[in-house]
Amino acid sequence: MAEVLFSFILTLVLLLFPLWKIFGKAGFNPLLSLLLLIPFFGAVACVLILAFGRWPATEGRSDDG
């Protein structure tokens, strides 16, 4: 039990926090990073959103990618 809790907290700190920042910077709602809490599929969903979604932060900018 303690092991599960430990890995959960580790994931939260090591991955969720930067992902929160990344979603925020890209202009998405940072709450989307909570998808990461869904095992496996959540992480894939986060990657897909960032890779294929239009980033609101760069929307309308002349140097948008």
Binding site: L19, K25, A57, T58, R61, D64
Partner: peptide, 14 residues
């Protein structure tokens, strides 16, 4: 996560 992304003009704030 913490770098200033070039696409955002380096300022971080879009």
């Amino acid at each position: 996560a913490f770098a200033n992304w070039p696409r955002l003009g380096g300022g971080g704030a879009p």
